[in-house]
Amino acid sequence: MSEKPVISASGLSLVFATHDGPVHALSNINLDIHEGEFVSLIGPSGCGKTTLLRVIADLEQPTAGTITVNGMTPHQARERRAYGYVFQQAALFPWRTIAANVGLPLEVMGLDKAEAQRRVKENIALVNLAGFEKKHPWQLSGGMQQRASIARALAVEPAMLLMDEPFGALDEIVRDHLNEQLLKLWAKTKKTVVFVTHSIPEAVFLSTRIVVMSPRPGRIHEIIDCNLGADRPLEIRETLEFQRIAQQVRDGLRAGHSYDD
């Protein structure tokens, strides 16, 4: 890990001014994420995990500290389309077909038609939605819609994916399936992934590192290394190694007062 980190935050804080006084969403965050890592941010509601992701994406502005994305400010990185963002909901435009939704960022970028078509086709195939190009979002299940939104994020061909509880609204069976697919996708594309979740098994299954956060103020409690190897079938969750890391995450959450009343 000698190379420069892709994302580097130091002393990062964000205070929201509200009617009930200031809310410390992020407090003194120090975090380096390197190329090709799969980093999960885990913690209870209000721990600032989504806020941190949004700061990386330049959707929120920090009030103190510094953060660089690809050595640039988040704003410059956003202008250069350094990342693809996947939201909690698929957020597809209902009036666009799946292909047109995946092509949306490419239209915004002003890519030429042939190249855009190639990327749309390629990324729809990558998330196993070939054949559904002409469907509208309501004709797809929730899991398929979220896959389409991942294809849309990948179509930008970003160096990294920022994912904000992308499978949080899906049932567990669909979630397991998409976790497996996401892992294969990550192995294939070698992208850096920052993944927000509140599911311990999901974080342990997917990540190379798990950032345990705690609330009030939102801060990093502990960073846990997690490497279950490249080839991870769902069954790996029954192994001792998996359960040891899961326990470690749970202990971290408890020590960070995440289970307090």
Binding site: A57, E79, Y85, Q88, F93, L104, V108, M109, V156
Partner: peptide
């Protein structure tokens, strides 16, 4: 808000956000 954030993440101009999101 999510759709607006999405357009923002693509660095879409307000003109593009208008035609591709607000109008439809």
């Amino acid at each position: 808000v999510m759709h607006l954030d999405l357009m923002h993440s693509y660095d879409a101009s307000s003109w593009q956000t208008f035609w591709k999101l607000r109008v439809p």
